[in-house]
């Protein structure tokens, strides 16, 4: 089974859900207003969305901003803690990886997979682009 949201109809706290729509790696995902990005992703059944240094999947661990396992790229902003960032309608979320792109040794510009703007970003500064 995957994580899920407590059904609104039976939830003892009697909440009112207002839907929001985000994308995760281009795929549309519906959440409800007020959720953290981690909440949206978990409630959509996703348990993991990042790859650690060994290439293995990672998701939420501490849930309160301490472990940095749940990092995401949001609207081009890298390394956002999903458990801390409130989801907003229209967020474009991309997953991140720390898997090495090749073996040991330095990566060269030729085999770099990233596209980071080489020109000054528009003000206010935009973060660099994320990875695959």
């Amino acid at each position: 089974m995957s994580p899920r949201l407590v059904r609104r109809e039976t939830d003892a706290v009697r909440r009112t859900d207002r839907p929001i729509d985000i994308t995760v790696d281009g795929e549309p995902v519906r959440g409800i207003e007020g959720q953290s990005l981690a909440g949206v992703l978990l409630a959509s059944g996703r348990l993991a969305w990042r790859h650690g240094p060994d290439g293995a999947p990672r998701g939420v661990f501490c849930g309160i901003g301490v472990c940095f396992d749940c990092l995401l790229t949001v609207d081009g902003e890298r390394d956002v803690r999903a458990c801390r960032r409130r989801a907003r309608d229209g967020d474009e979320v991309r997953t991140q990886t720390r898997s090495p792109h090749e073996g040991e040794g330095p990566t060269t510009p030729e085999n770099s997979p990233v596209d980071i703007p080489a020109t000054p970003p528009a003000q206010p500064s935009r973060p660099q682009d994320g990875t695959s």
């Binding site: 081009g76 902003e77 890298r78 390394d79 980071i116 703007p117 080489a118 020109t119 000054p120 970003p121 500064s125 935009r126 973060p127 660099q128």
Partner: peptide, 8 residues
């Protein structure tokens, strides 16, 4: 490296 503005 202006593109590093978003680096954490």
């Amino acid at each position: 490296f202006p593109g590093l503005a978003g680096a954490s």
